[in-house]
Simulated scan of single mutants.
Amino acid sequence: MNPRINYTLVGGFVIALVLVGLFFIGWLTKDNRNADRLLYKTYFYDSVSGLNERAAVKYRGVPVGYVEKISLISDPTERVRLMLRLDSDLSIRSSTYATLQYQGITGLLFVELQSTAPQGDVLLTSEKTPATITSQGSRLVEMTEKIDQAIQNFNQLTHSLNNLTQQLSVLTDQTVQQQLVDLLASLEQLSITAEQRLNAFDPEVYQQTARQLPIYLEQLQNNFTKELQQMGQQLQHLSEDTQASSRLLSPLLLQAETLAEQLRLESNTWLRGNRTQPAGPNQ
């Protein structure tokens, strides 16, 4: 008889063997330095396009860590913050600065650490308060950005040239050309007419008029002043005559008033006359 085969045990053994193999491979490829790496931070004010998390951090070309996190900070100014994991045996000093560099021709970026001088205080860092590494703009990145800007300007120039070509093609149309010819002819005719009018204008007449105008204005002013003086004199004479007439009129008014009073008192006399009444029979 053939012994029975337990497929469950066989499958479990295979799975366990695979897990052990994966664990062994992971143990071999594990970077034990991560547990000993310290946390730092740096800030960039330029674009970090092409830089990814887990990107390499190198010191003078030697890998010393990686980028752990990339975040955008806007307080107090807008900037990009990079959290770096660096080897604990690496001396990060106050003279150390970080730049962005291109990795080959892939277009990807990595962080390059350099130091202006070996002297300087060592930066103390911790998980809660990571030390800040100063940053500088990369000349290669700046040159690349300038090249991109130049390409954009060139594209705009090409677009402008295309528009100019289209406009020139419109100007070559027969109708537009005829309109331009008519416009130039009208301008020429206008110029000739203006020149003729300027030639017909006599400056001597204008100068003579300008010389006589003050004299005429002065005469007009003198005549107007004389008229005003004569009018004033006539008004004064009229006032004097009015006063004399009022003085002569006053006695006449008194006499008229006296006459009216007499007429009122002697009204019966005027009505009956001076005849006397006849005597009665007993008289």
Rank of each mutant, 00 (worst) to 15 (best):
L164H: 08
R54C: 02
G21M: 10
H237Y: 10
D182K: 09
Y66S: 03
S94Q: 15
G11N: 15
A35H: 12
E261R: 12
Q219A: 13
V170Y: 06
R60Q: 14
L39S: 08
Q230K: 05
T276C: 07
Y59P: 02
S91W: 03
S91I: 14
T77Q: 11
I147S: 05
T42P: 01
L82V: 07
R4G: 03
Q166C: 03
T125R: 00
Q177C: 02
T209G: 08
V18E: 03
N222Q: 15
Q179C: 03
G104P: 08
K41S: 00
L263W: 09
S169P: 01
E145W: 08
T158F: 05
V67W: 01
T276F: 10
L265G: 04
D241A: 15
Q189M: 06
N274K: 04
S239T: 15
P130W: 05
D241L: 14
R54P: 00
L22D: 03
I147G: 00
L39Y: 02
K146T: 04
W27F: 13
L82M: 08
P251V: 09
T193N: 15
L259V: 14
L72I: 03
Y206R: 09
T99K: 07
T116G: 13
A117I: 02
V111A: 00
V18N: 04
G21T: 11
L265I: 09
L213W: 11
F224T: 15
G107D: 12
V80L: 02
A56K: 13
Q208V: 04
Q152Y: 08
Q208C: 02
P130M: 05
L184R: 15
R60M: 10
V10I: 15
D36I: 07
L39F: 02
L198V: 09
T172V: 10
L82K: 03
R264C: 01
S250C: 00
